[in-house]
Structures are given as structure tokens and as C-alpha cells.
Design a binder for these strands. Structure first.
Lengths: 224, 224
DNA sequence: TAAGATATGAAAGTAATACTATTATTTTTG
DNA sequence: CAAAAATAATAGTATTACTTTCATATCTTA
């Protein structure tokens, strides 16, 4: 399994980058340290200049990999969803019972992220935290419709569709499968955000996990 | 009722502004046109300079009302939630049956917004669209914990708590009332966003309303 | 191994942003 | 009508988000 994973490359829409960061050492350092810096400073205060200083490289060199920091965010978020989709498919693929499969899917999406040694330059735990705190910014823009047409959100959409199909598999008559699927994906991020910053607005925390909450929510919704 | 409403002022945390925009003509024009401009350009492209040009006033005059555009966003969003809270309390207050009350609450939160003539310089429909497309940006910042302490999100939090209490009223044993309440508030905005930009990820649209979806979600979740 | 191609770095420049400060002018009000 | 308050005009600063140009290092392949 380890060897299998080591040969895997997460495929990200190539419009997110000018030059594939996986293709060079500098590229990988850009990705590695952008995750550390965005996590540390927040996306808004993060700049290519600061990143260049940190990795001892020039601002203009970073621009040879990514057009701007928005595209870098699209790259990082797409990579994240691609990585999670892999876990998702891997974990659910062999399960034939639809309800069990759905249960597993909810689990994969909502459980806390742990480090994956397969991608040494990417810290998935910090990246997950970036997704929780910054993902919305990738689509809450005036360019969202164009960027959607260009396929920048494909992987995320595919995840929602996979989830939706699993719901429909368990309960074909449930009329809100797409909405419920998107609620689970988006809601998971939101509940983790609330745990961090508005604990009074969530039951999740030390005793209750997002997985328990969403498992309950989904199965109660679709059980007749 | 009209006269009653006309005398009402939505109370917004006074730290959001330097000088109360309700206290002068210029202040009201700033608010009025900031809503139009943020709706038109998106929050990211909106600047005080552009707003000044539009209302034939000077950039520096706008700074006498709001420290920066982030604070203006906090003002607008607080105003919106204050306004919605008013509708919420007004509509549910007289209902004694807890389930009916909860149903009404979900309705108020999730139904499409219509213009309210009581506040002539504020277009609630456009403001609602700003909330759908920009609200997350008001809290997805590195300053969120400080700003939370200073009370900038009080009204929103109060709305979630009101919702939570209504859920608990109907079903005291349901263990995820806070999470479900925050899911309804946040999820409503997200479903409307999906209708606009990612229709394949939602069932809401011409035939299904967010109200139907969330009513189903909430009552199925809390019914034993 | 030399020549050419490619990648990276250094430096400088530009337009816009997000303010701040100062001073002038207009408006309000007592 | 005078003083105070509000607003406007102008200019200035530091930072951002790039772009451009040119130099240098490194890699590659004939």
C-alpha cells in the first residue's frame, strides 16, 4: 500500500499553474512553504514577496509557477480535494452495502485529517486547516462563473456528486440528495471552523465529533 | 404596523463605525451606495475611493464614518442580521406551539428576502445578496477571535442561539441543537449561493425551495 | 566538452490600494 | 453673526501585485 501510494500524483487542473510545481525542486518548495505561510499569516496577509524571502528565492521566480496568489489557492484547494477524493474512493470502493458505504463516506469527509507520508512536501493537516479557514475565498469572487466553466472546481463538484449518488443509492426517493451532499461537505468545514472560533455555536468539540453529527443528520433525513 | 416599523432603528455594534452613518445624510448615502457598489463590483474590488467618486464625496470623508472597508462590511452584515432578527422575533413571538414556532423560524431565515420600505436607504434584497456572496469574508480572517471578543458577531450568534433554543424546545433530547441551528443559518446562505453559481450541487431552484429542504432536514433530525 | 537552451535571480519600475495628514471651505447651530 | 462642526481638496506614504529586463547559473545534448 505504501508503495502504491508513493507512485500516485494528485492531478490538479493545469490552468491553476503556469509551470507544474511538481516538476521541480523550487516548485515543491513553493507549495510546501506556501502552506506553512498561509497557515501562519492567513491568506490575506500572505504575499509572493514574503514567500520568496522565506524560501530564499525571488518573487519573480514564484510568478513563473503561479500567475497570482488566487491561482495558488485554487491549486492548493484542488490538490486537497483530489487527495481527499482518493481517500474517499479508496475507503468506500470495496463496500457493497449502500448504507455502510454512505456511512464510510461521511466518515472520510468529516473525520480529522492526519498526516500522509506519501506526499512529503505537503502537510495535509495544515492544508486542511487552510481549507477550513480559506476555502470559501476561492469561490466567493466575481470570477466564480468563469472559473467554474474553466473547470477549477471540478474535483470538489465530483466529490459532492459522489456523495449525492451514495445518498440516492440508499434512499432513491429522498428529494434533496444534492443539497444534503453539499451540506455535508460545506457543513463539515463550517463545524470545524466553529469549534475553533465560535464554540458556543456548535455541539462538536471534545465529546461530540462532526462525524457523529453528520451521520445522524444524513441517516435521519433519508430514512423514511 | 407601518408606523411602528418606521420608528425602529436597527442597533449595530458602535465599534463598527467611527461616526454613526444613521446620524447624517452623507452617512446614509455612504451606506446606500456601498450596498449598490459592493453588489455590483464584489467586495474585493470595492474601494472607498470608488465609492467617494460615485457619491460625489471625498475618500477622506468616508474614512470619518468607517475605519476601513472591513469595518463597513461588519456594519452592513450586522445591520442585516439585526434586521432579520427583528423579522424573526416578530414572526415567531406570538406562536405558542413549539413545532409551529420552529417551522416559522426556519421559514423566516430561509425564504427569499423582499424589500422593506421602512429603511429607504437600504436595499435589503441586494444586501441579502451581499450576505450570500460575502458574509464569510467578515469572519474568515486572522482577527476573528479578537473581533468576536469585541462583539462584532453578537447578533448573528444570538440568531443561532434563538434557533437552537427553538429546536431544543421541540426536542429536548436532540444532542446537536447548536450544530443544527448553525447549519440552517449558514447552510441557507450556501444553498442560495449554489443556486446562483453551482446549480448542479443543489436541489433548490425553480421547484424546490431552501425552506422545504431545511424544514425537512430539521424536523426529520429532531423527530424521534 | 562546448554551445545552446532553460531555469532562476536581482533589480528596477508601474499602477493601484489603503490609508494619513493638512489645510481650505462649507454648513450648522446657538 | 460667530464659532464650531462637517466635509472637501490635495498631497503624501507604505505596501501590494504585479511586469520587465537583464544577468547568471545549470542542465543537456550534439
Amino acid at each position: 500500500m505504501k508503495h502504491l501510494l508513493q507512485t500516485i500524483k494528485i492531478e490538479v487542473n493545469n490552468k491553476t499553474y503556469v509551470k507544474d510545481p511538481e516538476s521541480s525542486d523550487l516548485g515543491k518548495r513553493i507549495v510546501e512553504h506556501s502552506i506553512l505561510m498561509i497557515h501562519e499569516l492567513g491568506f490575506d496577509s500572505f504575499t509572493f514577496k514574503k514567500l520568496g524571502d522565506k524560501i530564499g528565492s525571488n518573487e519573480s521566480s514564484i510568478y513563473r509557477y503561479f500567475e497570482n496568489k488566487h491561482k495558488l489557492l485554487l491549486y492548493l484547494t484542488s490538490w486537497y480535494w483530489g487527495w481527499l477524493e482518493y481517500q474517499f474512493v479508496f475507503a468506500t470502493n470495496s463496500i457493497s452495502n449502500p448504507a455502510e458505504k454512505l456511512q464510510k463516506a461521511i466518515e472520510v469527509i468529516s473525520k480529522p485529517v492526519v498526516l500522509d507520508a506519501s506526499f512529503s512536501h505537503i502537510n495535509e493537516v495544515l492544508l486542511n486547516d487552510i481549507i477550513i479557514n480559506e476555502y470559501s475565498k476561492s469561490y466567493l469572487t466575481k470570477e466564480v462563473d468563469n472559473e467554474n466553466k474553466e473547470g477549477y472546481f471540478e474535483i470538489y463538484k465530483r466529490m459532492v456528486m459522489r456523495m449525492k449518488e451514495m445518498i440516492t443509492e440508499v434512499s432513491p426517493e429522498y428529494p434533496f440528495a444534492a443539497s444534503l451532499a453539499s451540506t455535508v461537505l460545506e457543513g463539515t468545514l463550517h463545524q470545524y471552523f466553529l469549534v475553533q472560533h465560535f464554540p458556543s455555536l456548535t455541539d462538536c468539540g471534545d465529546e461530540v465529533t462532526p462525524t457523529e453529527y453528520f451521520t445522524d443528520l444524513v441517516f435521519k433525513s433519508i430514512d423514511k
